[in-house]
Design a protein around this nucleic acid. Sequence first.
DNA 1: CCAGACGTTGTT
DNA 2: GTCTGG
DNA 3: CCAGACGTTGTT
DNA 4: GTCTGG
Length: 281
Amino acid sequence: MMIVISWYAKIPRNFLTSLSLRACMCGRYTMFAKPSDVQQRFRATMSAEVERKLSTPRYNIAPTQEVPIITSREYGRTVEIARWGLIPSWSRDASLAYKLINARAETLHEKPSFKDAFRKRRCLVVANGFYEWKNLSDHTSTLLSHPPPKKQPIYVQLKGGGLFGMAGLWEEWNNPATGDVVTTCTIITTQPNELIATVHHRMAVVLTPEGEDVWLHQHESLESLRNLLKPLPSEVFEMYPVSTRVNAINADDASMIEPIALSELAASAACASSKQRSLFS
DNA sequence: CCAGACGTTGTT
DNA sequence: GTCTGG
DNA sequence: CCAGACGTTGTT
DNA sequence: GTCTGG
């Protein structure tokens, strides 16, 4: 903490106020609702196996892991399980997957990796909330000799903590090595609303229930689909800092989303502008 | 035509 | 599969 | 997203 | 630094 204070003293005021804090979107999220709540919220059916997998609440879902998605089938909506990280059907191997955890809304209609899935395989990625990491170290590092890298994880959810669907795409890939069919998915990102813009320049596309209906409808015009890929207003979200324990891949329990005490906000409190700091209270 | 890439994030 | 680069 | 690895040869 | 794994 003493070190943090000494940095603060060295940073020119105008520099501090122009500091833009950065973090990443959609690299980690939560889904801890009961299977029956998922069914009800999305009017979807699920197999016994899916129900079994959803019965474990998740507070730290990471790329490459199995996640629940909502797809639209001839017989209605279903909850299915997909691996997070899209593998296009034409991939020779699975190496692209770790790169394709997000798809940019602005360009997905023209990218070879997403184009076909955008037309034919849209889905909802079911979530209770997601994490962002505020990077508090980059600009200050040019002024200070040895600043320790500081990142503050922030949890974002709908006010009240309700379930929501993120716009996603899914694919089936045939693994030539094993013959297995692998179902994968990706989460679409777009420009942020004002609240999330204080943290980062991208955000996941969260749909309204009405938007979900359009997104999952099989024969929508590409234009009306693209119109859905916009940020929901700031007013529907709330966010707060959480423990860095979420950094550890294997940490996964309800304490991940507990607000941490202001006294634990060392670096973020020291570096954040007053406007950004107000978000913590 | 064939060969080769096919992506996002953040950081600089 | 589909697009870009040569 | 963060954490952790980052390699080959030969031997078992 | 960059890639893979979770």
